[in-house]
């Protein structure tokens, strides 16, 4: 158990570059740019729709919905 403390701290703060564990020539992860483009497009539509929906809701009821601030940590 000697050096346990050293080991405990010696493994912190490890930067991990995008791993590709499949040791093959084809990198399946390279397709994530396609996925993020498709999902980003639909997410942007949803985001715009929600923005106007909340705006309308605020105008009608005068209250701010909890869902509007989706960035906050859910602590």
């Amino acid at each position: 158990m000697n050096n346990r403390k050293l080991s405990a701290f010696s493994i912190m703060a490890v930067a991990v570059i995008q791993p590709s564990v499949a040791l093959a020539y084809v990198d399946p992860g390279s397709g994530s740019v396609i996925v993020t483009t498709i999902l980003g497009f639909f997410a942007a539509i949803g985001y715009t729709f929600r923005k106007y929906f909340y705006k309308l809701k605020r105008k009608m009821f005068g209250t701010k919905s909890n869902e509007e601030n989706s960035r906050a940590l859910d602590d």
Binding site: V33, T37, G40, A43, Y47
Partner: peptide, 24 residues
Amino acid sequence: PAEDRSQRKVSQKYVLALVESVTR
């Protein structure tokens, strides 16, 4: 040969909207 997908561009709005959607 593998297709070059590294040059694909995505708008920052798409990126932020995706992150927001995943957060939700």
